[in-house]
Design a binder for these strands. Structure first.
Lengths: 236, 236
DNA sequence: TCTTATTGTCTCATTTTGTAACAATAATAA
DNA sequence: TTATTATTGTTACAAAATGAGACAATAAGA
């Protein structure tokens, strides 16, 4: 795979959401020797579907196949074009700038968000970066270029989609309690929800399967465990 | 303006909605001597914002400035790459294929929908096409490439956004009746709505300003006229 | 003046949502 | 063993939103 295998001027960036404990998190990369933080991204092969290119990149970053993905916006302002930034990254990696000149040209970036089960992931840096780590959504480092804007738009889209798509299914393990599910909603919406109303509403959707209780080791009544029922009525 | 002024591999397509009478309509172009019907589209100048490129194209097609625009999806499957199609269009226009070879390469297309006031528009074909006309959304001719898919996705997005964005504001003239507003909703959702419920709900949003009645010339009580109130509370 | 079609508003039934209360219960402390 | 504590599942009732119909008002035409 060399430069000429990729479509010039076209990139993708991905906002990879995971949920752990009480917090919504995303994966952020840090480039070698530059202090630049960025979203995981990549390029599209000349004979590759755009969506497949993103899946391929996510597989490299997370080790997971068949990730839940939603494309949410394509960023195409000329302001994103800062050739000196990519040049610094390439130089910091002792890369032959001449050969990778295409990388310093203007790019339009198609942005996706992914939802994955935090526990299943081994974040893996790429050749240009020395880390790929989870960050709380409200404690992100300063991101390069327009990546902060991309994250904000991803969050907004995730919120808008929360009621219409099975978001939480992809963020939780197979079995979970009603409280855990509520925590996911609260983390995404960034607001507290009323326990009884939430429970009634979710159950009335008919998308959950109730399993045997499991004694949790806590000093109170044990909660039911739930899973998402197979082939739910698409919640539309 | 010549070929080298444009970003290669990147195009846009626009689904331009208008409303007339009872029907939702979109603008469709027909290419010279080929029988190909297509959405209005175009390319992005090397130093031009993506969104500006689309506004520029819409201005050429409709004569309008500052059109309401929403980007809704970027189509990037390799299946869209059918060089013979663009080649036929170029040949039918006696265009030097060598010089316009870039047009026959693979393109990723960013799709937008626009909402405009049907009555204000003079549809104008471009250099390659001999017509640009309104078609009822349910009576479209067969469209080239994946353009039918693009229209379907535009419609779905429009429906999803109907409650959250001020869609109708851009499809109606300044003054309109409650019945006309209801017709817009019905055309978009493709379903009948109950008059009293619709009226109550819309009025409760507090986004309409009621004006003096105008005797309509019809044999019944004259309806109020409404306009959208300035700076509505963004309906979110 | 009567008829017709449609509009604006109101009422009442139904459904959904907000809010609080309460019994059940798993671990812990006494 | 028994009481205590924290949390859960469910119910009950109030408040709000929605569905469905009734009805008076009224502009134009018969």
């Amino acid at each position: 795979m060399n430069s000429s295998d990729f479509l010039p001027h076209i990139a993708y960036d991905s906002v990879i959401f995971g949920f752990s404990g009480e917090k919504l998190k995303i994966l952020i990369m840090k480039y070698h020797n530059t202090g630049f933080y960025a979203l995981p991204g990549g390029f599209v092969l000349k004979n590759e579907n755009l969506n497949d290119a993103v899946q391929r990149g996510l597989k490299e970053r997370t080790g997971l196949d068949n990730i839940y993905l939603e494309q949410f916006y394509t960023f195409g302002d000329t302001e994103r074009f800062k050739p000196e930034v990519m040049q610094m990254i390439l130089e910091a990696n002792n890369i032959n700038i001449e050969q990778y000149k295409w990388m310093t040209e203007r790019f339009i970036s198609v942005a996706y968000y992914a939802l994955i089960n935090y526990d299943n992931v081994v974040p893996t840096p790429d050749a240009l970066s020395d880390s790929c780590d989870w960050y709380d959504i409200d404690e992100l480092p300063p991101l390069m270029l327009d990546h902060s804007k991309i994250v904000q738009k991803a969050l907004q889209t995730l919120r808008d989609n929360l009621e219409r798509k099975l978001v939480s299914m992809n963020l939780l393990p197979t079995l979970f309690t009603m409280k855990e599910l509520q925590k996911v909603y609260e983390a995404i919406l960034d607001e507290k929800l009323r326990r009884t109303t939430f429970q009634r509403k979710i159950l009335s959707l008919g998308i959950l399967k109730r399993h045997e209780k499991q004694y949790s080791g806590k000093a109170h009544k044990a909660p039911f465990l739930y899973s998402f029922d197979k082939t739910p009525p698409s919640v539309l």
